[in-house]
Design a protein around this nucleic acid. Structure first.
Lengths: 239, 239
DNA sequence: GCCGTCGATTCATCGGAGGAATCCCGGCAC
DNA sequence: GTGCCGGGATTCCTCCGATGAATCGACGGC
């Protein structure tokens, strides 16, 4: 176990042990380094790693603090590794997104607030206006697409689901997604799908919301590359 | 943007840009530091962060390499942050596990290999023998429980699902889970649920596999604390 | 041909120094 | 009293140099 791992583990113990909680401040570098029996350099490596993971937050001139530990923050590091993958592995990732967003849509049908429903309506109207233009602003449509899905995901009421979906279907992933959807009418079809989801949400029909969202995301999924990959049981290579 | 962030971003670019791929070796510290315009200390902080994220792998005396970038490895860091959460937030995490494993069970019904089916059978038999003893070995039963779920998850054929489930329902999480299940007959009920899932898999009945797995995991979920938490729309505090 | 030894390479760890950002507190003007 | 503004203290950020530890590969003995 390296010195850095001892730092990471030490801070983990301090949090799980109750010594440190969200928002609490850590001892200064010198003191914490002595306490954990490592040099300042090693301590900094460990603290930096925890910062990247979204567990700690360092502020120059101030100190090092434990973050809120919200799922949203903790999952943000996941987005980085997801974006690292190429287009070939987009399908299994999207399958996860589909399953989670479908569940969220079903939950949202019973829980969505009038304000959120209204906001989703506004987003769809904006998207419709975007599509009605002579020269369609694709970036604006993607923006509206993202906003709609985010509202539904959030209204599902499970912060872990929201954070995971956000991490998987992040900016890079979505852009890759739309880059591969050049078929005629893809955006119009998306708009119709969204409208169907919205109607189900407005009606409070959970089953309809699930089905509509699942169908929409399956539609998207079929436009992804390498459809044969999941049919192979064995992993291709690697030790 | 700190020096360390520049290192992380720089390595990310080298990977997404194709300069580096899985298994490739990075330039030595001194060289890479000069190339990215940072000191060796800052470089090491960035490399260490990527190591924790499962992207890089450093070997003393050898060099620094890009990992396989398998979802399983990349999601392993997620387990750390999940385990950081207390018992109070176990429910939303378990809901994600339930949805994903349900999907995996449905997929596995059509894809499971005879060997995996046989292995699952052996695990269930072992669990049954464990429960038949006068003094039940709870640790052994948890082990069998974990093994059964892992087989099903793997046979779902989606490595991202498998990795996510592994990260969420890791060792710490499961131990917390069973610690809260002291009701009479909980283990026997789990065993019966697993048997039902197994029969569905053996019959190749995807719908049955889904329902059985979902019911089983809902059962587990109901034993988790703070059931009222998800019914509150607003987040409790925090800026 | 096999194996051990030794040197070169590379990462791991440590210590120290100066810089930058922030906070806190006292002094000052109004 | 209230508000503003410095200045000092605190804290993290970055850099540099040096030593230790682990690995690899070449060389030579057997």
């Amino acid at each position: 176990m390296s010195r850095t791992d001892e730092v990471v583990d030490g801070v983990r113990r301090m949090i799980t042990g109750g010594e440190l909680g969200p928002g609490d401040r850590l001892p200064v570098e010198k003191e914490l380094a002595e306490r954990l029996g490592v040099s300042r350099g090693s301590l900094r490596e460990g603290v930096r790693a925890l910062t990247v993971l979204g567990v700690l937050d360092t502020r120059q001139g101030d100190g090092t603090y434990v973050t809120s530990l919200d799922p949203a923050r903790l999952m943000s590091s996941l987005q980085f590794v997801v974006d690292l993958h190429g287009d070939t592995s987009a399908r299994p990732f999207h399958a996860v997104r589909r399953v989670l967003e479908t569940e969220a849509a079903g939950l949202a049908a019973h829980r969505i607030t009038p304000e959120a429903l209204e906001e989703a309506r506004a987003v769809l109207d904006l998207a419709a206006r975007t599509l009605a233009q002579d020269e369609v602003d694709h970036a604006a449509f993607i923006e509206a697409d993202t906003a709609f899905h985010r509202i539904v995901s959030e209204q599902g009421g499970n912060p872990v689901v929201t954070a995971l979906v956000e991490a998987i279907a992040g900016r890079t992933f979505r852009e890759r997604l739309w880059r591969g959807r050049h078929e005629e009418g893809a955006e119009e079809r998306t708009q119709r799908d969204h409208e169907a989801v919205w109607r189900a949400l407005a009606a409070g029909d959970a089953e309809a919301a699930r089905v509509r969202m699942a169908a929409h995301l399956l539609d998207v999924e079929e436009s992804l590359p390498t459809p044969a990959r999941l049919d192979e049981a064995a992993q291709p290579d690697e030790s």
